[in-house]
Nucleic acid binder design. Structure first.
Lengths: 394, 394
DNA sequence: GAGTCTTAGTTCACGACCTGGAAGAAGGGA
DNA sequence: TCCCTTCTTCCAGGTCGTGAACTAAGACTC
């Protein structure tokens, strides 16, 4: 039961945040539109905006016809006020990207790895960080923060458990902080992809949504009431290990009948192989080949996969009543591009009528490379939350 | 994207709310403890408390030894400041109860019904309301609000869909408001039972929890970040219709393999019957008899039920990572009282290690009659949120 | 092209509010 | 009687949003 007082300062910070967030998320706005949207008085908007402009967070961006009188001056968050860096730590590479506040990529650094140790990752991320800073010509003091996305469970900026990397209890933010004084944020990869979709992709505008990711494995990011829901200890969203066939196929998590064992690319290909299908090449090639095959076992496997996935979606629809489900992940996208309508129809068979009627099921818009973008969003979100106040450096 | 300004008045209301909520939820507290908990200055606490006492919301309640000096004066929400009424609208009865703010029942009125129409329910609730007001000797102006719990989907104080009652699109709050000027709140029955457990029962202190209700049917109430989670259009929590056995038993919702078809009392008894078990008497009698039977089919059915229920719990554990799951409903309690440890162990087989380790699975403490209590909590929560400001009457 | 209308944005006095500090009152024990 | 802790009271200091009056900047009118 956290209950906190409010002081006069909180009030101003909160109102700065309201204004800044509106400008950032709802595109260029005039002061006049801000007074309407925020229900602040014109005086306060003027006052707060003047402060934000003086600090350089916000800038004027041309003007637009008013309704007959003085033209409105549009305001936007100055894209070059500060820069943010996002890093994606995967099994096969470490990617670091530098963005301006409008989230344009200004520089990128990739580093291939395999099963990297924490120390290696720290090294690669820090190298990537200085490399993108140098390449973009941005001053290090201009970098607002570094967001790092790791495939694993992350609690309080530390990696608690990352099975694919074989990590456990790695204080990644702390380790990175020894090599840079740029504020570091660490979070889970699926959540970061979800965050990217929610801010800049197919989830824009939704407040209760699920970003469902189907690749080799299956995961999701939950968004409740406009912000990411993480549960009591940040491991919410493990949708892939939901039991969907009681007593069914063995999943790599040890349990039986998990959704992942049926709709994860690995599970799908296993089922295809068992049905006599021919699986050739790497997982992705084989999966795509399966999807375009017209053979008998393939058709059945695809139909079954859609059915299982639909049941998984229906469980989300019934339990969390989202307004939108965004399907992503490479396998999810490949499947969705061909079979989205069937999938939607199939969900209707498993879900309750009312919540089904309230949900729209769509595909990710940003592709699988948006993980670093999502991670880079972390410092931006913090900036917006704090009303443009800069974090303290050590 | 709701973004709202803060004004200097909001600040005071918010601080009043912080103080009042602390006093209400954390028992009698002294001013001194309040300054520590809320981090408000002693001057402000004194000021705000004086105001609350002057208005009668808060009262002094004896004193307690200090650390060597003047004793601390304890403060509590005055139980008789106002009264609240809760109503439970079920298939077989309408129950209305009047409570003081400490949630002691002062009067109760039951009215048996069967498949009541909305108009009948309105009549019974309003009769119950005046009957409990008369019986308790409370002035009608002293009644803070009326909370009504209905078994069905409720959106914005209107019943959208209540299958067991056969209702659709019933503006219940509006209809009730024509017969009383006491502010009316309408909500879903499962959520209200959940709310009661969260405030006064086994959920106390938890901020991320699920109250799982197993009766003839199966439902749940989700609590995220300290408050009830309702999804985009208030129908979240339909845990019972989660697919758990893909292509399995037909559920009354029309889909196949829903959890409810396996662990709802009706589903359990059906399975028992199919296995050759003898089902006699009404559902509840038969269910209890099954639980205490030592015959072969009974043992298997019970073990299977525990397994299915565990998978359902595991799905919750994985997806929402709650800190607590509270099992209730008459069938859930009957089962839980005998088999809670087995259930817990079984959940561990289906859930991921980490979120499983973070959850505690407990039984409801309030029994099945707490629905009206939960409903009566609605106006109390509103009072606390508004810092003790009374709602406007028409 | 001067005047007027309309809408956008700014300035300023005002009242509401929290804080910290100081002084003191209240209530008990040593 | 003295000491200690808990409240209360008071005040200056500072912050903040608001409403009303005011200025700015175009377009329209005659």
């Amino acid at each position: 039961m956290e209950v906190r007082r409010t002081t006069v300062r909180d009030m101003r910070r909160s109102n700065r945040s309201v204004i800044l967030t509106s400008i950032y998320r709802e595109g260029p706005l005039s002061r006049q539109e801000l007074t309407v949207r925020t229900s602040l008085s014109a005086a306060s908007v003027s006052n707060l905006v003047a402060e934000l402009i003086a600090e350089g967070v916000v800038e004027e961006a041309g003007s637009v016809e008013s309704e007959g009188g003085r033209p409105r001056v549009l305001l936007r968050v100055a894209p070059t006020f500060r820069y943010v860096v996002g890093a994606e730590v995967g099994e096969t590479r470490v990617r670091v990207e530098l963005f301006d506040l409008a989230m344009n990529v200004l520089a990128r650094a990739d580093h291939p790895t395999s099963a990297p140790t924490p120390a290696e990752v720290v090294k690669h991320v820090l190298e990537g960080l200085s490399s993108v800073i140098t390449a973009s010509g941005v001053q290090p003091q201009q970098v607002l923060g570094l967001g790092v996305a790791v495939a694993g469970v992350v609690e309080d900026n530390a990696v608690v458990d990352a099975q694919t990397l074989g990590w456990e209890a790695v204080p990644l933010a702390e380790m990175l902080a020894e090599g840079t004084d740029i504020p570091v944020h660490v979070d889970n990869g699926a959540n970061m992809l979800g965050q990217a979709e929610m801010y800049f992709g197919a989830g824009r505008g939704a407040t209760d949504a699920v970003v469902a990711l189907v690749g080799s494995g299956v995961g999701s990011a939950l968004v409740a009431g406009g912000s990411s829901y993480r549960g009591t200890r940040s491991s919410a969203g493990e949708w892939g290990h939901m039991t969907i066939v009681y007593g069914g196929r063995q999943c790599r998590c040890g349990a039986l009948g998990c959704l992942e064992a049926y709709v994860g690319a690995e599970g799908v290909l296993d089922r295809y192989r068992e049905a006599g299908g021919l699986v050739e090449g790497d997982e992705e090639t084989a999966f795509v080949a399966l999807l375009s095959s017209t053979s008998e076992p393939a058709a059945t496997i695809i139909a079954d996969t859609i059915g299982y996935l639909a049941a998984g979606f229906a469980n989300l629809v019934n339990l969390v009543n989202p307004e939108r489900i965004v399907l992503g992940g490479w396998a999810g996208l490949a499947l969705g591009e061909k079979h989205l309508d069937e999938l939607r129809a199939e969900v209707g068979k498993h879900a309750l009528r009312r919540p089904y009627a309230q949900v729209s099921i769509v595909l990710c818009e940003l592709g699988r490379d948006a993980v670093a973008l999502g991670a880079a969003t972390l410092p931006v979100v913090r900036l917006l939350r704090d009303g443009g106040a800069l974090p303290n450096r050590r």
